[in-house]
Design a protein around this nucleic acid. Structure first.
Lengths: 337, 337
DNA sequence: CTGAAAGCGCTTACAG
DNA sequence: CTGAAAGCGCTTACAG
């Protein structure tokens, strides 16, 4: 069984391969009969276009690269984190319905990635997460359309899809304040300038300020976004402070806190309230259900693809920003005091 | 800045493009000086091979397709389920270090997928999960090397990576028996012949038999692998039966059971023991920690890639099976009775 | 409205 | 040991 090529379609229809190609791509207006003729022949022969060939000829690959952070360099990628799965899922779907395929890569976000990008002649790249300055520069030089997701860079001229983390931190804190809490612990990952934690902290601070509650430095706890670390921190919060509520800047952190408090027989939310950030599936699974800041991850992936497609089609590289709306997902981990 | 091609490398070295190509691929033995010369020129010029071109010429794409189930047809893929994330992560990593890129697709597992496979000229396909008979037939006709993961088909002549589900069900049940339980509820998804649930049930049955405990049909509960459904079932188990333990055939099901029992103030494991299956991250997060049947997901993905690469390289299509070992991950959800 | 033909950047029998 | 050349299957200016 030989492979069917465009030549076969041409022979079948009695047209030239040029005309068949135009009929398929629609890049030239042809009489409807001709187009229909080609369509029929394609169906009859079971012809499928060879993308390698078209990619070579047209210099377009219909391939989108997605960069995702990985735990250890040279090791596997981390999309164990449900957030990555969800957004990837959304990107894949939204790219596919627009005729693009997706190559996901947990490659070290360094030169090796540009190698892949060139090799495969990627039409566009979606970068999820934050990387080194060098990486963004290389990206820029590569001249491939790029959309950043959650990059936490303010100084760059990229298209970007992001969360309003300051507002998220503000909303979470305000929610606790509205429930009567004044002694609110802040439990987060490392506080890098410009990073997520820092922004959510800024929101925390401004909500407290607005509520007339001074920030108490002894209520601030920073570790990693890690379940076990969070457990230790939660224990310290409970033993070293008199906080009535904890704002955890990630659901995974909140999970650790809940686990530890459960073990210590401290009742949530009766004795202490907890609010998270992310609205992962697990927020619903745990007991009590975790009240948390939710974002529409599907929407986030969709927007990223849309913005990328727009850039690829229109060749406009102007920076643009889309801020994904957030909302509070109320469950049972926060009580009135 | 023009694109650097093999021609530039040829010019730079004073060799022909044929020799450069051979030097790069190693498909012909060349004097080491020549190879080094080529390497140097590549580095100097920053040459990157155009995969579209080489793919067209050699009829190899260095692309592996991974098929993953999706929730609703035409909708997004489900790799919200952490299992998919993890195995995908492993596949991507193991493929990459062997020079392959991965195209993940939640496409309806039907003809449209073969379209993709042909378009991209996939070198191999890894299929995760169970699909329709038609899909497997199409797969076979496509003549592309295939490795199945968790397909739950016994009648096919494919290479396959799977779990010993019967043994898993046996081990879980035996573990409960060894802890003194005799009234053990079986809570699973739908019991399709040849499906996961059915196999784990078989293990459950044989362990009971071995332990001299008759199977009590009123202890059998089937719903979907779904958190909310599982909650309802757990409530029924507790109210309608006198079981002292529940074997949940998936961690997600166990999560639902734990949540419901927590709400009902039924103490785990003091009043009822629970064992799960999968060892997802959440098994560690919940309270009490879930004792469950674990599998090495990284290993599973790695094996799938290895088997696929072997098939692609050696052109041997003999069926072959790799059974991923399982182990009991002990946490706090099972008590001696 | 349609087609002949160059060209995209590789690989690989084949010849020497 | 090295190279000239055909060919992979498309796209696309260009001519008519």
């Amino acid at each position: 069984m030989r492979k069917i090529t465009i030549k076969d379609v041409a022979t079948e229809t009695g047209l030239s391969i040029a005309t068949v190609s135009y009929a398929m791509s629609g890049k030239k207006v042809l009489p409807p009969e001709t187009v229909q003729q080609v369509k029929d022949a394609i169906k009859k022969l079971g012809y499928v276009k060879n993308i390698s060939a078209s990619s070579l000829a047209s210099n377009k690959s219909s391939l989108i690269g997605v960069v995702i952070p990985q735990t250890e360099p040279g090791s596997m990628m981390v999309f164990q984190n449900p957030f990555y799965s969800e957004i990837l899922s959304s990107i894949e779907y939204n790219a596919r319905i627009r005729g693009y395929h997706v190559i996901v890569s947990g490659t070290n976000a360094d030169e090796t990635y540009f190698h892949l990008a060139q090799q495969r002649n990627l039409d566009g790249i979606i970068v999820i997460g934050a990387y080194s300055e060098d990486f963004y520069e290389g990206l820029n030089e590569s001249n491939i359309p790029v959309v950043l997701v959650d990059s936490y860079m303010d100084n760059h001229a990229y298209k970007e899809v992001k969360l309003d983390d300051i507002y998220g931190g503000y909303a979470a804190t305000k929610y606790l304040l509205e429930h009567g809490h004044k002694k609110i612990a802040f439990l987060s990952g490392k506080l890098k300038t410009g990073g997520v934690s820092a922004k959510r902290y800024e929101g925390y601070r401004s909500a407290l300020e607005e509520g007339g509650v001074p920030v108490n430095p002894s209520y601030l706890f920073h570790a990693n976004v890690d379940f076990e670390k969070a457990r230790k921190m939660a224990r310290r919060i409970v033993t070293e402070t008199d906080c009535t509520a904890i704002f955890c800047t990630a659901d995974v952190i909140a999970m650790g806190a809940i686990k530890e408090l459960n073990i210590m027989q401290i009742k949530i939310p009766q004795q202490i309230s907890i609010i998270g950030f992310d609205n992962l599936d697990i927020a619903n699974y745990c007991t009590p259900g975790l009240t948390t800041i939710g974002q529409d991850i599907f929407e986030k992936g969709k927007k990223a693809v849309e913005m990328l497609c727009y850039t690829m089609d229109e060749k406009v590289k102007e920076p643009e920003e889309y801020v994904v709306p957030i909302q509070i997902v109320e469950r049972e981990s926060v009580a009135y005091i």
